[in-house]
Amino acid sequence: MEAKDICEILMRHLPDAVREFCIDTADPYLVIEPTCISDVAAFLKNHPDLQFDMLQLITGVDRCQSFEVVYHLTSLRFGHSVTLKAMILHDRPRIASIADIYPAADWHERETYDLLGIVFAGHPDLRRILLPDDWEGHPLRKDYVAPESYHGISNAPQ
């Protein structure tokens, strides 16, 4: 099934959830209302014609004015894939967690939180995953400035 058909099914059942269907990129994507992400994920997973059973990837993108959270879903059964995007405010980076729908989201959301500071509401254990717990800042943000030292270890280039 093509992305267009998936979009149509989704629009038919959750008309409020889809903001836009973007096809001018190499991989088309659906822009989703950030408040609806749980509903959309649950719908896509459970709809008998879609059955998106695997979450491949969650990506956070810093767009300077806003954050994008990108979800890549695929269906092993039908072999089709879909890309969902949710735009959230830069000063209030918050979106619902889908870890209860896709257990795979657990670590991806933790990583996105760790590196971009996007908070996934309802995540069972939202801690830093790659960086130490006492690290300050979120390195993948475009305005991030690397600290000069960490626990007395200099960060200056040799």
Binding site: T25, A26, D27, Y29, Q56, L57, T59, V61, V70, H72
Partner: peptide, 20 residues
């Protein structure tokens, strides 16, 4: 300006590069 998610089968599973 473009974006693509390309996946390949690496020895340990699906290796994907998502480039914007």
């Amino acid at each position: 300006a473009n974006e693509a998610y390309v996946r390949t089968e690496a020895p340990r599973g699906e290796l994907g590069f998502y480039i914007i």
